[in-house]
Design a protein around this nucleic acid. Structure first.
Lengths: 167, 167
DNA sequence: CGCTATCCCGACCTCGCTGGTAGGATTACC
DNA sequence: GGTAATCCTACCAGCGAGGTCGGGATAGCG
């Protein structure tokens, strides 16, 4: 289990908002009804998306949310990062790019200095792989997938040999 | 946080066992001391590895564990799967290959039949990506990485652009 | 034989986080 | 002013992660 329901609900929320176009905002109530999700919980989730600058809100009656950017420019690495708070595959991973901006990854394990844990190599690869996979999927693609309803073919995922070939 | 400490400790355990060669078994006590990990907890972790056929045990005094295969033939997808029990990125993912053996992935969400959740596309890609990344890393490679100790260069992981290029 | 090192196994415990609720403020359209 | 919506903070129950404990079975060794 990599991700929590925050990611699941948050992505669904973005899809619903994106399906509407930016002409008028979509209320959380409408999304909660459409996706059968708890409204109060959605409120907290959408706050994460707003804080990350992915949606914009309009308060008051007939208010709601619109996408802050075009769906083509919203990629899932940013979305999941905003929702989950981190993309580290392991507890001891700290993403530290405030120092020199080079995006290096630390392993905060106790005796790291002595031995240099080899698991770091593994988790680094996993993190890179996941981030890439997420970055290659745009919100536009998900909306498109949801819209043209692939009646029954969608049952079968891509074969394990082939890397998902981009948006 | 994708993985728990079971994966972390289990991989370290395999590395320690693999470093020794198969001439004589390695005791958990030795591993617990070397890696500074709780012995009682390691016992439960190694049980998972044994059940998956990755290590073999010898009981009694001077007993311990040896690898069941050559390190080159032990790949991390199998290891992490044995330790974590599942590689599903989301709760609603059920890996069901008992039916027809085709390895299709189900999403057990409530109204899946009606809409076909688009998030399934996303999580499927992530799962495939992670599985591939893990499968491309062998235990032999981790042992090698640990052994030739890269005194200080190991601080910097592989750049984010490049997919890890095989074992 | 008995000691001791080791694997084996199940019960138990604690703590933090996930998932969700409650209740209220604030804002804006009509 | 009513009402529909966003916002915000506190609260709560359940569960799994991470780890401990105690005891059993097993095998080398003097």
């Amino acid at each position: 289990m990599f991700f929590t329901t925050k990611a699941e609900y948050g992505v669904r929320l973005l899809i619903e908002v994106g399906r509407q176009g930016n002409d008028q905002p979509v209320s959380l109530k409408a999304i909660a009804d459409a996706e059968n999700l708890p409204l109060a919980y959605l409120e907290r989730i959408v706050a994460l998306l707003k804080r990350a600058g992915l949606v914009q809100s309009t308060r008051g009656a007939h208010g709601g949310y619109v996408l802050a950017r075009k769906p083509e420019d919203i990629h899932m690495d940013e979305v999941v990062l905003a929702l989950e708070g981190s993309l580290a595959p392991m507890e001891c991973f700290v993403d530290d790019r405030a120092d020199d901006g080079s995006g290096r990854v630390l392993c905060s394990h106790h005796d790291d200095s002595g031995r240099g844990c080899a698991t770091k190599l593994l988790w680094t690869r996993v993190q890179v792989g996941v981030t890439q996979t997420l970055a290659q999927t745009s919100l536009a693609e998900l909306i498109d997938f949801q819209t043209r309803q692939l009646p029954r073919v969608g049952e079968r995922p891509a074969p394990v040999q082939r890397t998902p070939t981009h948006a």
